[in-house]
Write a protein that binds this DNA or RNA. Structure first.
Lengths: 329, 329
DNA sequence: ACCGTTTTTGGTAGCGGTAACAACAGAATT
DNA sequence: AATTCTGTTGTTACCGCTACCAAAAACGGT
């Protein structure tokens, strides 16, 4: 930048202003500076700028696992909005481990991110304390927690699972099995289970621990769950797969075994993967606002950072989900 | 940091060293400093550190589109290796547009990333020039380009498409259709097409433009391509879907129409999505080393950055792919 | 005890920008 | 014509850390 200043015969401040506050510099000066900038291919050092102004244009995002299709839409929404305002996204994965998450938060704070997005809503007390102390805005967006750190943009896992279970109940299914991902350190799974159980109570159905299962992600798990539940508890008439691609695996298993869906057993899923619409029978599911969550998260974060909209502190935005009834139920 | 120094009764340099080069400080001093650090919850300012040392721990990654399942494995590989060395990942998407990519490169260089990973291998001349000038190591990893910018870690799209087409030919298929994603600004698609055509020549089969199609991503596109090609050119006996999830859509279409696979038409895919193994019939495909690409990319980048391994400049690492024969061919 | 060597600690000058204020025009006001 | 105002440019002091070199302390051998 000094080079530019010298070659343009102006002060360093004028260069800085020509680049960052063009309005505060006369058109001739601006032109002169910008010409030199292009000539020597000068690239501003954003690090120095951030240090000096104590403002950064980096947002930190922590997801449990990057290779999970459900996050990609959210990341896309985030990324697109942030890019428009010149913000960058730093992404890290916590592996569903709050201690790992805390460490990543520490690193991000060290990098002086100007905002933080956390998918998980389970944090160590130290993590919460560090964030509070740093004063930067945070959005949690995997669930709606009882005690948010700051802002929340999400749908309610509890309500969604409740809605789908009620739907199955109303359709006349009486022995509704439930499969989710492991709920250790995964409050989304916990809330889905709670929602399912609340709906059973509402429907006057007896809970049966034999048909409530936890498993890992993947098609194979879904297949395995379906086989297990039908064989161990033959009177089961519906399976609600509240987890990543489990439903597709479960459906394949039925096709393989020749179990009619929904004749022998109904099948419902949690996330609206494109696939569920195209398989046969098409699978009833919940359309969750994954992209919108990213978009709204970015917007509210930017309001706080750029406009200093302090009144948004603690906002909880509950985005709607949609129940999609298809052939499988 | 000054606060820490004062409260510990040592110089600022000692604090800096206790934190970053613990070996160069006596155990007592180190302990004293670290205690104060914990007491007041001091968080080093990584920005200032990077500026001062002109070393950063940030790697920039540019992918065409974040919401594409094929990248997630690569990102995971990258992320896991980088994390172990304390490096952060900044991710941005170019939307398959080289100009957009150039802009992102500029931003990343401004942020003083210490390395760059580009999925695309098509760049504007200005982008190439900026990268060259910056002197930072770069890895391209979506394809093996004729003229790499610097290092390459990838498989060869050409060779993979060639291998699969040859495989179909050897199995006796004679009218092999080919579907890929649009090849404008997508050299991966172009190379796949080239590989397909090279194989046809090798097999002594006549190319037929009516059965070479380009489409967009998605199940629906795959279904549409399958329907179109079978109806317009009934003598077609195989379809090679060299693009994201097209094959699954194509298979569903066959199931819906009652076309036997591979009886009526054989089906081959390009990427080993988990799904392809579980559908019926299971689909032949190419297993591409997506995760390994990320891992190797990170490793080679770190060698350059940390160890200054200049002899690696320009390395081209061609990772193997694997052809998986299943029921559909 | 002495001197050269090694280890540990401290002082200072940046890294490349921005904030805050000072200085100086020319325009507007009285 | 003197005064105030407004808009543009320049000066200086940091932002929080590390590199580099100097100083002090500890060590080892004679």
């Amino acid at each position: 930048m000094r080079d530019v200043a010298v070659r343009a015969g102006v002060s360093i401040m004028t260069v800085s202003r020509a680049l960052n506050e063009p309005g505060k510099v006369s058109p001739e000066m601006r032109e002169k500076v910008l010409r030199v900038v292009r000539e020597i291919g000068y690239l501003p050092n954003h690090l120095a700028g951030s240090l000096s102004s104590s403002r950064s244009t980096t947002i930190g995002l922590i997801v449990p696992s990057i290779d999970n299709s459900i996050y990609t839409q959210t990341v896309k929404g985030l990324s697109e909005v942030l890019k428009r305002s010149g913000f960058q996204l730093m992404i890290a994965e916590s592996g569903y481990d709050p201690n790992e998450e805390e460490e990543l938060i520490t690193i991000f704070l060290s990098q002086r991110v100007s905002g933080l997005v956390l998918h998980s809503t389970e944090h160590t007390p130290q993590a919460a304390e560090k964030i509070r102390k740093s004063g930067i805005p945070v959005v949690e967006n995997g669930n709606i927690p009882a005690e948010p750190l700051d802002m929340v943009v999400s749908f309610s896992n509890h309500d969604a699972a409740y809605a789908m279970t009620m739907h199955l109940g109303r359709l006349g299914y009486r022995k509704i099995a439930f499969a989710s991902l492991y709920s250790v350190h995964n409050d989304r799974s916990k809330d889905r289970l709670d929602g399912y159980q609340a709906a059973l109570r509402q429907l006057g159905l007896d809970p049966d621990p034999r048909i409530v299962l936890e498993t890992e992600r993947g098609l194979a798990s879904g297949a395995e769950v379906m086989a297990r539940v039908v064989q161990s508890v033959p009177e089961v008439d519906a399976l609600f797969c509240a987890g990543d691609v489990l439903a597709v695996g479960a459906l394949f298993e039925c096709q393989k075994r020749g179990w009619q869906v929904p004749g022998r057993i109904a099948l419902a899923s949690f996330d609206d993967v494109d696939l569920l619409r195209h398989v046969s029978p098409s699978v009833s599911t919940l359309r969750l606002p994954r992209y919108d969550i990213g978009e709204r998260t970015a917007r509210i974060l930017l309001s706080r950072i750029i406009d200093g909209a302090e009144h948004l502190r603690g906002s909880v935005i509950d985005l709607k989900f949609e129940l999609i009834q298809r052939e499988s139920t």
